[in-house]
Design a protein around this nucleic acid. Structure first.
Lengths: 342, 342
DNA sequence: AGAAAATTGATTGACGTACCTCAAAACTCC
DNA sequence: GGAGTTTTGAGGTACGTCAATCAATTTTCT
């Protein structure tokens, strides 16, 4: 009464094992009629192929590559570490993970990097990159040559990716908005918003969500135009310090980008922790420390471990032609306070 | 250059396959000296046994059982659904999940239920139950007969369980405390606390964390003695209504237990949504709706899907004698607002 | 009808491990 | 040094699937 095997469906369909195998692996030389008989036997018995036995037999290795932008940000570092850590455990599962880093705004370098990948015979790709035509074409090209592609952290909704692994950034911005409004408890004032770049899709979305909530629910607050930090600590610190000097009655600061370090630096230097509600993104080690020190009130984050594992699960499912369990692959918007620091 | 196999370690150790097999599966009849040679060959080559091939060979089935308290609460319902859902996907992994329900405060019934399990030849157990001597002895008994045991949702720190799958309830209470304090933005008043039962360990811990934060950080607030709802909507609604009538200046309500429905019922009836900050636990369908309707400000929750998958991963690792990846098995305290509702 | 082509069956050997048997070799102990 | 015991080796079968070969059968076409 165990699970049905190929033998059982061969018997049920009244064909030989060889034929069942041909049908299952879509090899030629089977009449449509016969194939149909096999398929209905599969349905009737509820056969599902034993992926592990199959992989064992064919000596299959899944080769997945993570394509990340070059950069020293703590978020990227944590992401790379998560990839390495996941890679260790996945070796037992016949999955090999590679990481390649491509220059952020250098399309030629990116194309070169990805072409190298293709020659290596990669099975799947998780790509984190800004939305550009070059990337979009690259994804289309990869898909054409049978490589599964997921976008990571930043989506490319117009590209033919199989799946997006990351959070809904509008919702993340909205979440930041409510927390900002509620933590300020009715106080009147202005809220500064810092982004990495006003062009990046995720920054735009977070800002959108943030402003929407503030405008809808907190008429006592006024959001200022975005400041650009460009992912650099010094630059972020400078623009913030400048803005603080020029504006009065700043009660909140939302750092929608990853460069929280520059923010906390200014907050610490000017001793603003008590007076200003500060909300940042991505739970890096610096953000953790800042939370503990009270320099940061809230961090909105996505778990890098989940990102990596979800991406590999999705890629594997796509390679095997299986469906994914959507509920399992939804990346949560995590709200971290000092009190629930994991 | 592939992964080393048993053949490779046989050669490296200068012994036969049979001997390697005896060592790996701890079968008798191998001199300590020889076993040592095999072990050092394993270390040297970095051999890791292919679990899937092994399971295939021995036709292994992992049989795990979830032991849940009887009850109709939405949380339990969601947990049961998560178990069923996970069970479907896990069939391919040779894991069979069962759920059994035992009467909450009936030790005899519980023992009977668990004894039935033992006879069925179960490999692992995930148990959610109040901390009692009966349960503790049961766990010890199970462990003795070689069954892996994890506690679920509620820990039994004095029992010899292999692992606890659930959140840190003190931290959860603290999280509720900060959110309560900050959402109230300096207002003065009293905060009501509702629990299922003042005896349950997790309720005590949440209450502890909640009070600690309020006392440390929010002198403007005063927490009232716990009200008991006993997991019943009507009863919860009654005690809250009563307390509201007897106390003035209630500004917050923390429902540490799962019976959020009774709370939202009263809030809706008396139109208190705007005046009182309400924080509850567990994101059931009712809690979702209440968040959307603004009857609930925050829900602190643990993802039931994660709970179930983590429990099965841990049990499987224990059965295989593998280590778990601690970071992957830490269940997050999730903060859910209307804006980041998943 | 006969030849050519397409389809199907039967069989075999992997993959990496478990588990069993039987015989050979190596150790005890007196 | 011989009997007894313990340890080791050699070999086979199985798990569920893939992949390949070669022969046998059926279909298609002329």
């Amino acid at each position: 009464m165990g699970k049905p095997t190929v033998h059982d469906i061969a018997e049920e369909a009244g064909v030989s094992l060889a034929t069942v195998d041909r049908v299952l692996n879509e090899r030629p030389g089977v009449r449509t009629m016969t194939a149909q008989r096999v398929h209905s036997a599969i349905d009737k018995l509820g056969y599902v192929r034993d992926v592990h036995a199959a992989n064992l037999a064919r000596g299959r290795q899944y080769r997945f590559a993570f394509v990340l932008p070059e950069g020293q940000s703590q978020f990227l570092k944590a992401l790379r570490e998560a990839i390495d850590e996941a890679g260790v455990g996945l070796r037992l599962e016949r999955v090999a993970l590679d990481t390649i880093e491509v220059p952020l705004n250098d399309s030629v370098g990116m194309i070169r990097g990805l072409e190298a990948l293709q020659d290596q015979g990669i099975d799947g790709l998780a790509i984190m990159a800004n939305e550009t035509p070059v990337v979009r074409d690259m994804i289309a090209h990869m898909k054409e040559s049978g490589i599964a592609v997921v976008t990571l952290v930043t989506d490319q909704p117009n590209a033919e990716r199989d799946h997006f692994v990351g959070i809904d950034n509008v919702a993340a911005g909205r979440t930041a908005g409510v927390l900002m409004g509620r933590f300020l408890g009715g106080r009147y004032g202005r809220v500064m918003v810092v982004v990495n770049s006003t062009h990046a899709r995720d920054m735009v979305q977070r800002r959108l969500g943030f402003d929407a909530v503030i405008n809808e629910q907190f008429p006592n607050l006024h959001t200022l135009p975005s400041l650009e930090g460009h992912d650099e600590q010094e630059r972020t610190a400078t623009v913030i310090a400048q803005a603080l000097a020029n504006q009065d009655n700043i009660v909140g600061l939302y750092c929608a980008g990853a460069g929280t370090r520059g923010v906390t630096q200014v907050i610490a230097e000017q001793g603003l922790a008590e007076r200003i509600v500060v909300i940042g993104h991505e739970l890096t080690i610096h953000a953790r420390q800042a939370l503990k020190d009270g320099l940061l009130d809230v961090v909105i984050t996505q778990n890098v471990g989940h990102l990596v594992r979800s991406a590999t699960r999705v890629l594997r499912a796509k390679c095997d032609g299986r469906d994914i369990i959507a509920s399992q692959e939804r990346i949560r918007i995590e709200i971290v306070l000092r009190e629930n620091l994991p």
